[in-house]
C-alpha cells in the first residue's frame, strides 16, 4: 500500500520489524508501535529535547526524525541503557541513571530520559567533562523543575564514581560547609 512501510529498525541492539505509515516519526513508532514510552512527547516540534534518543551514538530528536529514514542506524532509547550496561558486565542500572537517582536530579521526571541520553553521549565521547562541556551538551534539553544544578551534579557524581575520584561537594553541602566554618 502506498504510504505504508514495512521495514526493520535496530532498537537497543535488537532488530525490530515495524509496520507503520510513512508519515510517522521515529518517536511515534517507538511509543505506539514498539511500546517504548520512555522517550517523551513534549513540544513535538524540536524545541524541548524530551524525545532525545541516540542514533549511532549521537543525540537526535525523535519527534523530527522520520522513522523509515532511520533504517540501518543503531537507535538507543532510555530503555536500552540498563541492558547495555548489564551486557557490558555491570550490575544494576546504567551508572548515570543511578547517579541521577542518588543526586535527586529530577522532580517531575519528564525531561530525564532525554537528559540522561544526552549526558550518556557526552560521557561516551568525553569521559571527564567540565561544567562548560555539560552545559553545552545538555543545552538542547529543557527542564522546568530542577534548575539544572542537580543534573550537572549527577553527571559529576557518575564521573567521580567511574574514575574513582573524590566527588565534588554538592551545592547544598558546600553551602552548609561554608556556614559551619564561619560559625
Amino acid at each position: 500500500m502506498r504510504g505504508m512501510g514495512e521495514y526493520q529498525l535496530e532498537v537497543n541492539g535488537d532488530t525490530q520489524p515495524v509496520s507503520a505509515p510513512d508519515h510517522w516519526t521515529l518517536l511515534e513508532v517507538l511509543r505506539y508501535r514498539l511500546g517504548l514510552t520512555g522517550s517523551k512527547q513534549g513540544c513535538d516540534k524540536g524545541d524541548c529535547g524530551a524525545c532525545t534518543v541516540l542514533v549511532d551514538g549521537k543525540p537526535v530528536l525523535a519527534c523530527l526524525t522520520l522513522a523509515r529514514a532511520s533504517e540501518g542506524r543503531a537507535i538507543t532509547t532510555i530503555e536500552g541503557l540498563m541492558p547495555a550496561h548489564l551486557r557490558a558486565g555491570g550490575t544494576g542500572a546504567d551508572p548515570l541513571q543511578q547517579a541521577f537517582d542518588r543526586c535527586g536530579a529530577l522532580q517531575c521526571g519528564f525531561c530525564q530520559p532525554g537528559m540522561i541520553l544526552s549526558a550518556r553521549a557526552l560521557l561516551d565521547r568525553c569521559p571527564q567533562p567540565s561544567r562548560e562541556d555539560m552545559r553545552d551538551a545538555l543545552s538542547g534539553n529543557l527542564c522546568r523543575c530542577t534548575g539544572y544544578t542537580q543534573i550537572f551534579e549527577a553527571i559529576e557524581s557518575a564521573v567521580a564514581e567511574k574514575l574513582q575520584l573524590q566527588p565534588k561537594l554538592r551545592s547544598w553541602e558546600a553551602q552548609r560547609a561554608a556556614k559551619e566554618s564561619t560559625r
Partner: peptide, 12 residues
C-alpha cells in the same frame, strides 16, 4: 500532539 500530514516517503 502534532501529527504530520500523510505523505509517501522515498529513500533514494
Amino acid at each position: 500532539m502534532l501529527r504530520l500530514p500523510k505523505f509517501e516517503l522515498c529513500t533514494p
